[in-house]
Amino acid sequence: MIWNAENIITLSFAILALGSAIMMITRRNPITSALYLIVNFFSISGVYLMLRSQFVAIIQILVYAGAIMVLFLFVIMLLNLSGEKKMMETFSYKKISAIILGLMLFASLGITAFFAFFGKYKTMNPNAEIMGTIQSVGKELYTTYSFPFELVSFVLLAAIVGAIVLAQKKFE
């Protein structure tokens, strides 16, 4: 690994993403968790920018950090929740085994990924810079993928109708 400016920026975005993810699952107050998740989404968006995918980076901030997390914060404030019990007070064998299970999952997936791509793909494809622009993604979206693009609008319509029906006052 070469210590140039690009790698250092990528590494700091990655560390920020990991740190905020760990903070998110350890905080007791749900609002604090949601705010850390927003930090995490912003830093992942930075990693997308370092991967030369501008369109996905912008959409990440607009859709995830903008729309979805506002919805989460609204619901948390509507429900007026109190924080969970302290981690140590409810420290049971279930939680320890869950953490061990998560680490084992990471180990197995990580070993697979590491050996499958060891020494391959050292640098990005030279086309990546032109590929990630809004122009090329939009062109692909409206030509090759125009039918799935229309279908996905029905998914959103169904979700809106379903959300209104489910959150109604009298649900039968």
């Binding site: 993403a17 990991l18 993810a21 760990i22 998110m24 699952i25 992942i44 279930k94 939680k95 869950a98 953490i99 299970l101 998560g102 680490l103 999952l105 990471f106 997936l109 990580g110 990924a113």
Partner: peptide, 13 residues
């Protein structure tokens, strides 16, 4: 993968 594992641990704990 690290982010995914952190998510799994969060779901379980």
């Amino acid at each position: 993968l690290l982010l995914f594992s952190i998510g799994v641990i969060g779901v379980l704990t």
